[in-house]
Design a protein around this nucleic acid. Structure first.
Lengths: 229, 229
DNA sequence: CCAAAAGTGTTCGACATACACCCATGA
DNA sequence: TCATGGGTGTATGTCGAACACTTTTGG
């Protein structure tokens, strides 16, 4: 048995995370101001390098935790960006990941303890290297995933109103949806539980809160059900 | 300006290609018998290592050409497989690519000059490392792409019959399709040209040949059209 | 004349879309 | 009492699914 592929080239492998959040109205991404060279002072995605004793998912989790204090969020590998001169310092490939976080839960902590900032998609500054391309790619994957699986709930608090859910989907899909049709469709999926509780913050009448029913969803999936929105 | 990220780990990056072909009846993948260690003599995907002066798409094209003599085919990056001990020799990550080739055009050349062999999906031998996982992933991507874009034509000769096209889609999707519904749907897309020519090899009556009209398709796309099958 | 594949339309049901009014409440 | 957002059902059109017979021609 041989012990190395000794004549082959090795490369640096970065991991960059596109972190999505939702603030009741708009879809946002979390960026940090770089405090190191090159491009110090410019805005960038959260990133870091793969270490030799971890896989990419682990690296993405580690980087996310290190830069934001956050753990246990939805993370998904997207694409490997490999243009030879994409990083001016040294040949580096970057694997992009997208993350979904419930920003209500983490907002203040984030912006105070770490120098991260939320930007709406339209207000986001231009990013270093090919990070802009990564964001575009991530948005299109997010749309796909949100339309084909119950992934949107990752961006909401555990309990949420129908209106919040609708606003979220409108933000993800970039289009207005009809209130009645949306609710009918969601109800026909039969994967939410309506709670006895109301959220009173948005109106005088108050609106019922719902929870995503993970167990029920899994049972339905095993039964051939497929989520489509 | 700094000139290296000197303290970071570097890794070997492989590229492995899942090559799909179609032989009038079944979807196949092209494998080679490894003539080097480790796992010499076992079947594997076509693979090689990324070199420092090329990007991943270039590497995939180079590897494909080197191992099969084929150039200019549809290639798409899929996923980074990064488990720490996936390759027993040395830490290696692998980026999988899937390729679509018109096997009629390349068949004999391939199996004679190179030690490659076509396998139907059900007859394929078990593969080294995590190559089996890569194939599964590639099939699901192929299904998605073929359902949402005119990518199936990459697997057919330039001129083809409706029946061939239907068989191809049946093979990709893994289900029988209704002849009339299929033809109606394809015709309603309005992206094929019917030729005056018939293919006489499959029946006494002969069946008309069609070509995919790239120009027309592009015009329709620019016009907001979206391919769905 | 017969076997074997090619070609061709219509009906029916399901699902998506469009659309407007009453309700409950706090101020 | 009124302003604000919450909640609810129906009618219509579109698209996908099921389905069977005639045509051609080489042997």
């Amino acid at each position: 048995m041989i012990h190395s592929y000794s004549s082959e080239d090795k490369v640096l492998l970065a991991v960059d995370c596109i972190i999505f959040g939702f603030d009741e109205e708009e879809l946002k991404i979390l960026l940090i101001k770089r405090d190191f060279k090159p491009e110090r002072g410019k805005w960038s995605l959260m990133g870091g390098f793969l270490k030799k004793d971890e896989n990419l998912d682990q690296a993405a989790n580690r980087i996310l935790h290190h830069l934001t204090g956050i753990n246990n969020v939805y993370l998904e590998q997207l694409y490997n960006f490999s243009k030879v001169d994409r990083d001016p310092v040294e040949r580096t490939l970057s694997v992009s990941y997208f993350a979904l976080i419930n920003s209500a839960e983490h907002n203040t902590e984030l912006t105070e303890n770490y120098s991260a900032k939320w930007f709406t998609l339209s207000e986001a500054p231009s990013l270093i290297f090919d990070h802009g391309k990564m964001v575009k790619h991530a948005i299109s994957r997010l749309r796909y995933r949100a339309s084909n699986g119950p992934i949107g709930f990752e961006l909401l608090p555990e309990k949420f109103t129908m209106r919040q859910l609708q606003k979220l989907y409108e933000a993800i899909l970039g289009e207005k949806l009809d209130k009645r049709n949306f609710i009918n469709k969601i109800n026909s999926l039969d994967i939410l539980v309506k709670l006895d509780e109301k959220d009173m913050s948005s109106s005088r009448k108050g609106s019922f809160l719902y929870k995503f029913d993970q167990q029920k969803y899994k049972r339905k999936i095993d039964d051939g059900f497929s989520f489509k929105l």
